[in-house]
């Protein structure tokens, strides 16, 4: 098993948002975490990545047999955990290519593999950028600065392509995207999907799942998983709305 979340209670500012969440994820699987606003979807994503504002009150997460909470956020990243941000952060004055190469080389160093010099990395980056149909003009620009909403989300998937994580948590990657951008982003994620990687899609809407077919769907309400099933569960939710599961959560 790649990731096991056991009885996770976590929240922010002393207030519990996740209240006993359990989840098991194997290599090669795509899991969709769905749920109404405030159900704790993004909290789960941020706790996995190690966001400092979130506190874990109870429970544990085992990643590749290790206690995830023993690792700092950057260590988690180097061990293969990746979070695609719901709101990607702008980093003025740091170019996309500098940033990506530093991140890539940090990971390579950690794995004891060879680092890439700027020229080698540029070739590697060009190849990866095809995944999300990004042209090289994005490389020189400051990270996310002045990017449109769609460009920022594509940039997140580009980072995922470059860093090749074992576990990718995509937090509302579909939010704020028009249909063309959604198609590009979804196609990118599908290209990166493989038997070595697990993906968690955190999403409010079923829409993304028309493009990326999940193996499992988990419905989160009031900090717990209240319903689980296959991809057909998403369609059922689309039809019946969240009131149906909310009622079940009580």
């Amino acid at each position: 098993m790649l990731l096991e979340v056991k009885n996770l209670h976590a929240g922010i500012d002393g207030k519990a948002i996740l209240k006993g969440l359990n989840l098991q994820i194997n290599k090669g699987e795509v899991h969709a975490i769905m749920g109404p606003n405030g159900s704790g979807k993004s909290t789960l994503a941020k706790v996995i990545a190690g966001h400092p504002s979130y506190e874990v009150m109870e429970g544990e997460i085992i990643y590749e047999g290790k206690n995830l909470f023993d690792l700092e956020p950057d260590e988690r990243a180097r061990e293969g955990v990746f979070l695609a941000f719901q709101y990607p952060v702008e980093v003025p004055g740091v170019s996309n290519s500098q940033f990506l190469r530093l991140a890539y080389n940090e990971k390579m160093k950690h794995l004891g593999q060879e680092e890439l010099d700027p020229l080698e990395f540029n070739d590697y980056l060009k190849e990866k950028a095809k995944v999300v149909e990004m042209d090289s003009s994005f490389f020189k620009r400051s990270v996310n600065e002045g990017f449109s909403g769609g460009e920022k989300k594509r940039n997140e998937i580009l980072q995922m392509a470059v860093l090749e994580p074992k576990l990718a948590v995509l937090d509302e990657t579909d939010s704020g995207l028009d249909i063309d951008a959604l198609r590009i982003v979804a196609a990118g994620i599908n290209k990166l999907r493989d038997s070595e990687k697990a993906i968690i899609l955190v999403t409010h809407y079923q829409r993304l799942l028309n493009y990326i077919e999940p193996d499992f769907v988990h419905v989160l309400a009031n900090g717990k998983i209240v319903k689980e099933g296959g991809k057909e569960l998403a369609l059922e939710l689309e039809e019946k709305g969240y009131d149906w599961v909310k009622a079940a959560a009580k």
């Binding site: 190690g50 956020p73 941000f85």
Partner: peptide, 27 residues
């Protein structure tokens, strides 16, 4: 938030801080 973003990409804290500092001065 900027710092966490860089950490979440595997940059260690010193490197992340230096890179953000550089970004501040780059202009």
């Amino acid at each position: 938030e900027e710092l966490f973003y860089l950490l979440s990409r595997g940059l260690n804290e010193d490197l992340a801080r230096n890179l953000l500092t550089y970004g501040f001065a780059e202009e």
